[in-house]
Design a protein around this nucleic acid. Structure first.
Length: 632
RNA sequence: GCUGCCGUAGCUCAGUGGUAGAGCACCCCCUUGGUAAGGGGGAGGUCGUAAGUUCAAUCCUUACCGGCAGCACCA
């Protein structure tokens, strides 16, 4: 048992019997057991010694079982209400569950309400949930006979050495490995159906599209309520909403997938760009700029035409030339590299570009400014010798982590993506690239997880995933080792031996794209940007028009000190102005009335604070100038 | 791209088979008020686009465009 004690039974016992032997309270609370760490049904009969723990609603293993049972209850409800529906898969998720149904008629929101109602009835019926193990062919026959063709199909996919188990509750029988609760009553009522959406059978767009009904499920009502509240909070910090509220940017249908940056949003953008430009310069990158439109021949040579033409915007010209808007900057950077014959002494050569790129993303992929068709990569390519991969990777990892820290992201994970099924280059080249990158990330001292088959077509990559204030993960940075493209496009340097060699190219980005990273920063801070990033850092608010002239002096002094500052001289009450500029998340409010004008002071109120502080104007300017300074 | 839902004033939304309404924002007037909404008045909309049904369409039907959610995609 978890407490280290041993319990002995004369013969085989079930989990339920073990729980009962410990105490009647536990017997009642028991939902399942774990046997040597693996979750099992409460009815599982043990005939050997094992490490056993009783799973109750508070156990970490309980939620997944509850959610999976909720999926079954939903399937049972659907089969009762809409018997013509076929069931397919219904797993637990991080916050609940879903079940994919095959049915010609779409489920309406009213249907969802009915299904949810029926689920509650099923819980109240407290139907026993029982496990049965069936012969494979008999099970397939059974599901075919009851018209569950997807289930019957799936049975043949299950490895031969696995048992075919069915779970029965009421009149509903599902193919399932389990485990499950002992009865539907144990599920409780802390669940809610959320939405219906499309999903492909077995995740493949070529297959039939099913209807996926999503629900959320929790151990108790309190947790459910907490989760629903969290959803509301997440909605409040949605960058699309804040972009509108803070007047940062907009998108409109004539330019789907492109951003209209408003003055405040563009100020934020330029502030971040200026910051990154300083960091790159300090790390010995040279900034360049390459053309937007390039002839098809270059994209054919680079391999993009063959593999990614679908995603490129192309233009046919009258003289039979075809131009393409660049979807990435790498081939352009190689052109600059090729303008000189380079010595190995010049390497590593780091070329950076805030590269404006266009990719024709599928319409369903567009999302605010996070996933767009026109975006700007903080792209750079490091041309180096193979033996420099390690030191360059280590330096890049250090730079990236430091940049992320400056934006308030401390929790960063690294994923290693190796060769994809469709790729350029020989396997030996891939062996070399993957080996070098692995050695480098290990030298950087960063733990990483594998992401098999997810590399770029020209090489393996590291992906840097940061976690935001509400626990969501975002992949932003990347570093990719490329032995292929420099060769395809004939980049070369002269080595110590006087011979021509092909350099290795490291593709790397920290933000990924400005648009996406800005969206992440906005959501991370819920719009309450740190002082150095705020588009308007300070506002001078007048109490009466008598202070207008003085307010203008205050503004000028702050502006001269480098702050972004505006005045609000409107004929409104100070309450109104404080409220308005608290809602628009101005970090600093400087209130001035007759008293301040006479004394040469300001009343400083910091966003989120309740009080104000009276300061001499010069002292305030000195202090705020210091506080508003960007990092590094 | 696929499935479902949605598209009404600058914004958030209500509404009806007989050509529209609220709050906020905007403009004007009164108010000069000391830290999260002072009062009054006014202006503002070919109801996403195009066809169709109908005596009559913002409302019903279809297509298209765009948005949202999910799936697929993300070099």
């Amino acid at each position: 048992m978890p407490d280290g004690k041993q319990r002995h039974f004369p013969g085989p016992v079930t989990g339920a019997e073990i729980a009962a032997a410990i105490g009647p309270g536990l017997a009642k609370a028991a939902l399942a057991i774990t046997v040597d760490g693996a979750p099992r049904d409460l009815a599982t009969r043990l005939s050997r010694d094992a490490t056993v723990a009783i799973v109750t609603a508070t156990s970490p293993e309980a939620l997944e079982i509850i959610r999976h049972d909720a999926a079954h209850a939903m399937a049972e409800a659907v089969k009762e209400l809409y018997p013509e529906t076929q069931v397919t898969f219904g797993p637990a998720t991080d916050t609940g569950f879903y079940y994919d149904f095959a049915r010609d008629t779409p489920f309406t929101p009213e249907d969802l309400a009915r299904i949810e109602q029926r689920m509650h009835e099923i819980v109240d019926r407290n139907e026993p949930v029982t496990r049965e193990e069936w012969d494979r062919d008999r099970a397939a026959e059974f599901f075919n006979a009851i018209g569950e063709k997807y289930k019957a199909e799936w049975i043949h996919e299950i490895p031969k050495d696995e048992v075919i188990s069915l779970y029965r509750q009421g009149n509903f029988v599902d193919l399932c490995t389990g485990p499950h609760l002992p009865s539907t009553g144990k599920l409780g009522h802390a669940f809610k159906l959320m939405k219906v959406a499309g999903a492909y059978w077995r995740g493949d767009a070529r297959n039939a599209q099913l209807q996926r009904v999503y629900g959320t499920a929790w151990a108790n009502e309190k947790e459910l309520k907490h989760y629903l509240l969290q959803l509301e909070e997440a909605e409040k910090r949605d960058h699309r909403r804040l972009g509108k509220e803070l007047d940062l940017f907009h998108v409109q249908e004539e330019a789907a997938g492109s951003v209209f940056w408003h003055p405040y949003g563009w100020t934020l953008y330029r502030t971040m760009e200026a910051y990154l430009r300083r960091r790159l310069a300090a790390a010995n990158y040279a900034e360049i700029r390459t053309p937007q439109l390039l002839d098809r021949s270059l994209w054919i040579a680079s391999g993009h035409w063959e593999k990614f033409r679908e995603h490129m915007f192309t233009f046919a010209e009258s003289d039979e030339k075809t131009l393409a808007l660049k979807p990435m900057s790498c081939p352009g950077h190689i052109q600059i590299f090729k303008q000189h014959l380079h010595s190995y002494r010049e390497l590593p050569l780091r070329l950076a570009e805030f590269g404006s790129c266009h990719r024709n993303e599928p319409s369903g992929a567009l999302h605010g400014i996070m996933r767009v068709r026109a975006f700007t990569q903080d792209d750079a390519h490091i041309f180096c010798m193979p033996e420099q991969i390690t030191s360059e990777t280590v330096a890049f990892c250090r730079l990236l982590l430091s940049v992320y820290r400056d934006f308030g992201f401390e929790d960063v994970r690294v994923k290693f993506s190796d060769r994809p099924p469709v790729r350029a280059g020989a396997d030996a080249t891939w062996d070399r690239a993957e080996g070098a990158l692995k050695a480098a990330v290990e030298a950087a001292g960063l733990p990483y997880t594998m992401n098999p088959g997810e590399g770029a077509f020209y090489g393996p990559k590291l992906e840097f995933v940061l976690r935001d204030a509400i626990g969501r993960d975002w992949q932003c940075g990347t570093l990719q080792v490329d032995f292929v493209m420099p060769e395809l496009l004939d980049a070369a340097y002269i080595g110590e031996d006087g011979q021509r060699h092909t350099p290795v190219m490291l593709h790397r980005a920290i933000f990924g794209s400005f648009e996406r990273f800005i969206a992440i920063v906005i959501e991370h801070y819920a719009g309450k940007l740190p002082l150095w990033l705020a588009p308007v850092q300070a506002r001078v608010l007048t109490i009466t028009s008598e202070a207008d002239g003085y307010a203008e002096q205050v503004r000028e002094k702050l502006a001269a000190a480098g702050l972004r500052v505006e005045t609000d001289l409107r004929n409104e009450k100070i309450n109104y102005k404080v409220r308005e500029h608290s809602l628009d998340k101005t970090p600093l409010l400087l209130v001035v009335g007759k008293r301040e004008a006479d004394d040469g002071t300001v009343a400083l109120r910091v966003l989120g604070g309740k009080d104000q502080e009276i300061l001499a104007l010069d002292a305030a300017v000195a202090r705020l100038k210091d506080k508003a300074r960007p990092p590094a």
